[in-house]
Amino acid sequence: MPKFNEQERDIIRERLFKEGQRLFSDHGLRKVTINDLTTAASISHGSFYNFFESKEHLFMEINLKKQREIFKQLDSFIYENKELEPRKLTKLVMYFIMDKFFTDPIISSINGELWEYISRRLPSQTIQNNNLNDSLVVEKLTEAGVKFNVHTSLVVKVFQAVFISAASFILDEEGEAAIDILMEGVIEKIVE
């Protein structure tokens, strides 16, 4: 396998991110092959593995990068709304994130079934990195004065469950109402 200098590695990694994002957005994780990715990025099949363990690993890295970008926007959103009552702020934050997630073709493609598929194919550390990313939302809310009745790890799991459930309702005619009811119940239970 060829050795790449640091500049070449950066260029190839960026190409893989760009082409992976395009292909995953257009076709979904399961339909994209390593060959599709390497052809689009103009690298050999074997070279792909110098950068990522699998297509699922690339997909998750793209997902995590997109989440970090959204969470940066979240800082100013929380700052602008920090005077709101904690439950109202939490609800607004969850809707803010949902709006960003559901308009992104990569993040919005992750439903319960795809998450199970990814979880089986990736090392647990990669999945834990996603959960750490998600816990940033809880930390940001806590910094804004929101107090939770349960441990952070449980809040993260509850938020993830709400997002996965909401993703399945998003195209449903009554989906918005169902999401709102689910959100209200969850927030009442976990926020002081």
Rank of each mutant, 00 (worst) to 15 (best):
N111H: 02
Q21E: 15
Q160G: 10
L37Y: 02
D134V: 04
L74F: 13
F4R: 09
Y79N: 10
K88V: 06
I11C: 02
T39R: 15
L171D: 10
A144L: 05
S76T: 14
M98K: 06
T152L: 07
F163V: 08
I127E: 02
S165I: 05
D104C: 03
S168L: 08
T39Q: 14
Q7D: 14
S124T: 12
I106V: 15
E61L: 12
Y117D: 12
L58I: 07
M183S: 13
D36P: 04
F48C: 05
E113W: 02
R15Q: 14
E19T: 13
K88H: 08
L16E: 07
L84T: 01
Q73C: 05
N63Y: 14
I78T: 06
E61K: 12
F17N: 07
I118A: 05
E53Y: 11
M60N: 01
T38W: 00
E174T: 09
F163K: 07
E80W: 01
F59I: 04
K147E: 15
I34P: 00
I11M: 14
S108V: 06
E56C: 01
R9W: 02
L64W: 03
E173K: 14
L84K: 10
V146Y: 03
K55H: 06
E139Q: 13
I70Q: 06
N149I: 10
D180P: 03
N131Y: 13
L37I: 08
N133T: 14
S42Q: 13
Q7E: 15
H27S: 14
L136P: 00
K72D: 12
V156W: 06
H45I: 08
I179M: 08
V156D: 01
D36R: 12
K147P: 07
G112N: 11
R30M: 05
E116L: 14
I187A: 01
A41H: 09
K157V: 01
L74C: 09
Q160A: 12
L89M: 09
F59C: 01
F24Q: 02
P2Y: 06
F96K: 03
E80L: 14
I106R: 03
L141R: 02
I118M: 11
N149H: 09
Y49H: 08
I97S: 01
E176S: 10
V156K: 00
S135L: 02
S135M: 00
R120V: 11
Q7G: 08
P86C: 04
L29M: 09
V158L: 14
D36L: 10
K66R: 15
D172K: 01
M94G: 06
I164T: 14
R120I: 09
F96G: 04
L74P: 05
F102P: 01
G185D: 11
I34G: 03
I187G: 02
F24P: 00
I181S: 09
L58A: 00
I107R: 03
F96C: 06
S153Q: 13
I11N: 08
G145N: 08
G185Y: 13
S168T: 15
